[in-house]
Design a protein around this nucleic acid. Structure first.
Length: 117
DNA sequence: GTGATGACGCAGT
DNA sequence: GACTGCGCCATCA
């Protein structure tokens, strides 16, 4: 990440794109990695992303409970679940099954590549 | 410039 | 164990 800091949400998008297929992350993890200070900022950033799942896999970002809290922003209530299911993530009742197993921690995975600080 | 809102998270009850 | 309220920071009205 170049950490261009043009807009903090650019870093959010970059980090979301780094989420491997079949994995998911949380707003809190992203906010913590980017030092945003509040997970709400991540939510706002994704809301401002233009809703482009093909460009930004926002469907891989869920709240800390693994709930598809942002599904309503995907056009259809089931779009987000469909995208996750297509990647092999089991979604049950709008919640990710075995969420901890699919959880992707940026601080754990990118700690050595972290050039923020 | 102030108040309200939001794809959240945590502590307290 | 579930529900409620408050805090966090940035944007919009």
């Amino acid at each position: 990440m170049a950490a261009a800091k043009n807009h903090y949400w650019e870093d959010v998008y970059a980090l979301v794109r780094l989420i491997p297929r079949g994995r998911v992350s949380t707003y809190g993890a992203i906010a913590d990695y980017l030092r945003l200070g509040s997970p709400r900022i991540v939510g706002w950033a994704l809301n401002n992303c233009g809703h482009n799942p093909e460009d930004i896999p926002a469907h891989r970002v869920v709240n800390r409970l693994g709930e598809l809290s942002g599904r309503v922003h995907f056009g259809t209530p089931t779009r987000m679940a469909e995208l996750l299911l297509a990647e092999g993530v089991i979604v049950e009742d709008d919640k990710i099954k075995n969420f901890e197993k699919y959880m992707w921690h940026p601080l754990e995975e990118l700690k050595e590549d972290a050039d923020f600080e």
